[in-house]
Each structure stands twice: as C-alpha cells, then as structure tokens.
Design a protein around this nucleic acid. Structure first.
Lengths: 157, 157
DNA sequence: TAGGCTATCGTTAGTCG
DNA sequence: CCGACTAACGATAGCCT
C-alpha cells in the first residue's frame, strides 16, 4: 500500500478532504459518545461544515445547551472562592453561548450560500440575471429559508 | 497483558474512570483539532466534568468566532448577484488556512488560561497574591509555556 | 496522583468496484 | 459519487514507577 503518513495540514484536494471529513466526523462523534458513556460526564461537539447542510451537533442541540449550562453552574459554585477568576469564567461562558448561537446562525447563512452557489452554477447563470431567473431564484431561497428556520426551531425546541 | 476489551459502559471505579477521562479528553481534543485543521472547518467541543475545576472548551471561542464572522460578512444577497463565485470559494480556502493557524494559537492561549485558573482555584488564592505565591505562579506558567510550545512544534512537524 | 510504557485494539488513507 | 476493504497508523487500558 501507499504511504499513510499524513501531514497535519489543510487537504487541498476537494474529494479527499470531503472523504476525510466524513470519516473523521463519524470517528469524532463516536469518541465523544464514548467519553460521555464511560466517564458519565456531559460533553458536546459542534461541527459546522460546508459539506453538510446543517451543523453536526452531538449529542443534540438541547443537550449541547445543557452542557453549556453546566459550564455556567459549575462556575457559579466557585463564586465565593475567587471573584476575579469567576468573572473570567463567566465571560468565557457567555462567549461559549454566543459561539453556539453564531455557529447555528452561521450555518444557516452558509447553507443559503451553498444553495445559491449550486443553483447559479447548475443553471449556468452569471452575474446578471433575467427577471424570470430572479423570480425563480427568490422562490427557491424563500423556500429554503423556511426549511432552515424550521430546522433551527426544531433544534431549539 | 490483561484484557483491553472494554465494555462501553460507565466505569464504576473512580480512579480508573478519572484516568480514562484524562486520556480520552486529550485524545478527543486532538481529534477535533485534526478535523479542524485537515478540513478547514470550524468545530468545537465542550466537556463538562467534575474532575476538572472548569469545563474543557476547544478551541478558544473568541478567535474562532472571528473567523466565522468573516464568512458572515459576505452577505447572501451581495454574493448572489455581484461576486464571482469561484473567487468566493478561493477566499474560503485561504480563510480556512488562516483559521487553522489562529486556532492553533488560540489553543495555546486556552491551555494557559485553564492552567492559571486551575492553579488559583486549587490553591484557594484570590485577588491579592503574596510575593511568594506570585513567584510560584510565574514558574508554573513558564514551565507550561514551554510544554505547550513543544506540543505546537510537534504538531507542526 | 500523575506520567511513562507497550501490547492490543481502534481509526482511517488510499484503493477498488 | 458512495460504500467496502485493508494495511498502516493512532489511541489507550493496564501496569509500573
């Protein structure tokens, strides 16, 4: 067989990168699940990728939020012990929360971007669209927007 | 050697569970870092555990979000009509590369942050440190800095 | 308790259908 | 493109210090 030794660097080849992504995403999620099960602790992973139409969230968005909440609560317990560090942690908590929201939102936009890119490319449409093309495109985007919003609602529920 | 075959279930023995936790946490974070680097995508993991004085968060959310914000800046509507799509993808790739570098750096910062927080908390040290405490702390940080730098070098090699 | 070691098991890069 | 396969590499349970 050929060499397996892989440099830890961005994989330039699209096909190889996607193949690697799918394998490793699966492996990573398995690792999180094992850690959670074996050690009885809450943990989550969020993977936002252009290959998937939605971000991979393990175990699920609700639990992910719970993990982040625990993050918060554990720091609150320490309040009396060290005010400065507690404040520092609180900052990190709110940033982590922002991160989750932004990842979710970012993915929504990313999905739309990919959709539009694919649409324009498949239909060989360039910069200047005809009125009809614009109508079709807008419909498509609108429909997709609803889908994505439903997904997000479902995730938040 | 004895059995390596491990049942995928909660490890009842506290010592064994903690040992497994520390090893697997390390391995998991490495996996996330690899996925992020190899595939140029944003991902994070949050591990909330009673073993650590604070939850493990990878990477540092702040800088990771800056990268994602860049994606957001290319607004959906602007993209679809005005911008050359190929160029857009090319930008994405170079941004992903920047991301990899930044995440690596963030990780270094994060380790130091966690170290410092853990130290202060474990030693029940609050705002005003004695001169001696400060010296010990500096030594600790300095040592950790070297460790982390070695890790990064190893990753780059 | 933490850190180092290695046999064994798990993951995955490259390849083929 | 995807799924299956397998050699090679990586992770880690158990042990020891």
């Amino acid at each position: 067989m050929t060499r397996r030794k892989v440099k830890l660097a961005f994989i330039c080849d699209d096909t190889a990168r996607k193949a690697s992504y799918n394998k490793r995403k699966k492996g990573l999620i398995k690792k999180v699940r094992e850690l959670t099960t074996l050690c009885g602790i809450p943990a989550c992973a969020i993977i936002s990728s252009p290959f998937d139409s939605q971000p991979e969230v393990w175990p699920n968005p609700e639990e992910a939020m719970n993990v982040i909440d625990r993050y918060k609560n554990s720091s609150v317990k320490d309040e009396n012990r060290n005010v400065n560090q507690e404040r520092f942690l609180m900052q990190r908590i709110s940033k982590a929360r922002d991160q989750v929201r932004k990842l979710k939102y970012d993915n929504r936009e990313q999905e739309l971007n990919l959709l539009m890119f694919g649409y324009l490319q498949n239909n060989n449409i360039s910069d200047d669209l005809t009125a009809e093309e614009l109508r079709d495109f807008d419909k498509l985007v609108e429909k997709k927007l609803k889908e994505v919003d439903n997904k997000i609602k479902k995730l938040d529920a």
